[in-house]
Amino acid sequence: MEYQYPIDYTWSTDEIVDVIHFYECIEQAYEKGIDRDALLEAYRRFKEIVPAKAQEKTLFNEFEEVSGYVSFQAVKAIKETATGEKIKVASKKLKR
């Protein structure tokens, strides 16, 4: 993609890599689908790095602004999808 992922520069390199991986999983959920368990694992790691709901919401909003992908919809789909199934979120990309 041709945009910068929202990150916190106080994070370690490993944490930045893991958060970017989570964003890539969100993209995949919209573009071609992703295994539910892979997205859940990425989200759990994201929550270890970003435990506060307020910061999560801020990052989700920033990511949506630059990418057009609504992270909350993909995370919500985890709860609605059984283990081993694929998540494919209907695209609602913002018009630029």
Rank of each mutant, 00 (worst) to 15 (best):
K93H: 08
E15H: 11
I34N: 01
F72D: 04
L39W: 03
V66I: 14
K76V: 11
V66E: 09
K47D: 03
Y43L: 04
R44M: 11
R45H: 08
E41L: 14
Y9T: 13
A90Q: 12
K47S: 12
D18N: 14
T58I: 11
A90I: 14
F22N: 01
A29R: 02
Y23T: 01
Y9H: 13
G68V: 11
C25G: 09
E65C: 06
P6Y: 04
K76N: 15
V50G: 00
E27T: 07
D8V: 13
V89K: 00
K76Y: 08
S67V: 07
F63P: 00
Q28M: 12
V50K: 00
T81N: 04
F60W: 15
H21L: 09
K79M: 11
E80I: 03
H21N: 15
P6N: 10
S91P: 03
I26F: 05
S71F: 02
R45S: 04
Y69K: 13
C25M: 15
L59F: 11
S67E: 06
V89A: 04
F72Y: 05
K88Q: 15
D14I: 13
T13G: 00
R44T: 09
Y5E: 02
E80S: 12
R96H: 07
V89I: 15
R45D: 05
E65W: 06
A42I: 06
K79C: 10
E24Q: 15
T13Q: 08
K79N: 12
H21Y: 12
S91R: 10
A74G: 05
A90R: 11
F63N: 01
D8S: 12
I26C: 04
T83K: 13
E15W: 02
K92L: 13
A29G: 10
E27Q: 11
P51A: 09
E15F: 03
L40T: 07
M1F: 07
W11T: 10
T10L: 11
D14P: 00
E2S: 09
L40C: 05
Y30M: 08
F46H: 03
P51C: 07
T13M: 10
T13K: 11
S67K: 07
A54F: 10
K88M: 10
R44K: 14
E48L: 12
V66H: 02
E85C: 07
A90L: 11
D35R: 08
E48S: 07
F22I: 07
L40P: 00
G33L: 05
K88D: 03
R36N: 08
K88T: 14
L94P: 03
I26G: 02
H21T: 12
K86D: 09
E80F: 05
